[in-house]
Design a protein around this nucleic acid. Structure first.
Lengths: 199, 199
DNA sequence: TGTACATCAGTGAACGCGCGTTCACTGATGTAC
DNA sequence: TGTACATCAGTGAACGCGCGTTCACTGATGTAC
């Protein structure tokens, strides 16, 4: 057996990504040190060369999720300057993100963050809050530019916005990936758009 | 130690309720046979007199959740005949339900139903679908009575409706129960109402 | 350019804990006589 | 009304499995000379 050695930094990235993939495909119970190691092509105990323990691997997964969310916001900011268009694109991106990374809802609702370690829960709260703030910023910008009605709180809009995707995402998975997310999102967006757009 | 014997039916109810409470307070990892037994006041192995195994206890929890949801729909149907008012009341009831039973999102997203046993996942899908159908029925009724605009699909409205609650519920928990769910729901409902109401 | 050495990623065996489940038993409860 | 018996809920010890983690080791890699 040829033993290949790689830098800790490379391994950390590989391990975090492998962990995220495992959670996406098999849920939190699929996130075992052994499974991560197998996926990376290494023996379980080798994981401890790069992470202090399983908990730290999970923290790295939170980092990945955080980066994905922030990345989507930055991407739509570059794609267009129109606030309404930014929201529409972000909606589509978020839908894709959750589809590709089913890990996200699973991690958010897992015992490990939802119920366990208070620090991790706070961290997840920070991630979600940051994301909502970004959405709120887009809305506020739209209000200032008189494109979005300004008798509504940007934060409230942001929360509703996120709600547009969550339920379809759940239905999509529960239905065995049969639920038509695109169609639902399209319909919901149409209604949502009329609602908040300045007439 | 005085040994008290109770009917299987009574015990099954006690066990299911204890299990639901445990998940609400400690998450899915708190749902151990030992913990359930302790809560009921019995030794772990006694659980097996009333359930074939832990999986069947979880199934009983699904039953409870299903009944709670259906119960809310039936309740608002009795409270008023006005479709719009029914939706408003259901929204409030659902918010309370999730607050009191944090088990609901945790169970829905748990590996046990979200990823594991396909039968259980299908069952959860049935529960959610039934609930959404009920909401859709209320919407359709409103459309037929010309109180809700009929250029929108009742099902799409139902999904959006559920989305109004889900995100606030998550934020409420992640924030350490600091997020003001009532305020968000109130604002969101106001916007949602204007949107779907026939003008 | 080649060699000796320090560093550290990777290995494999072993551990200990939590937890679901089994099983032979005990003794409370309700019923038939 | 009282007694014998069948039923079955409750007990406690024991098991086996999965899994996170530890530890002494091996040997690949890069560097100093």
């Amino acid at each position: 057996m040829s033993i290949e050695k790689l830098d800790t930094q490379i391994r950390q990235n590989q391990i975090a990504q492998a962990a995220l993939d495992l959670v996406s495909s098999q849920g939190m119970k699929g996130l075992s040190v052994a499974a991560v190691a197998r996926k990376v092509g290494v023996v379980p105990s080798a994981i401890y060369r790069h992470f202090k323990g399983k908990d730290h691997v999970l923290d790295a997964v939170l980092d990945l999720i955080s980066h994905r969310l922030i990345g989507n916001v930055m991407a739509v900011r570059e794609e267009t300057a129109d606030p309404m268009e930014r929201l529409r694109l972000l909606l589509a991106r978020h839908a894709h993100l959750i589809r590709d990374n089913q890990a996200i809802p699973r991690v958010v609702f897992s015992d490990e963050v939802y119920g366990g370690n208070p620090g991790r829960k706070a961290r997840m709260h920070g991630i979600v809050s940051t994301y909502l703030s970004s959405v709120g910023d887009i809305v506020r910008d739209g209000q200032e530019r008189r494109m979005i009605r300004n008798d509504v709180d940007p934060g409230a809009i942001a929360v509703m916005f996120l709600g547009l995707i969550q339920t379809p995402a759940i239905l999509w998975h529960l239905s065995g990936e049969n639920f038509d997310v695109s169609k639902q999102i399209e319909r919901a967006w149409k209604i949502f758009r009329e609602t908040i757009e300045k007439s």
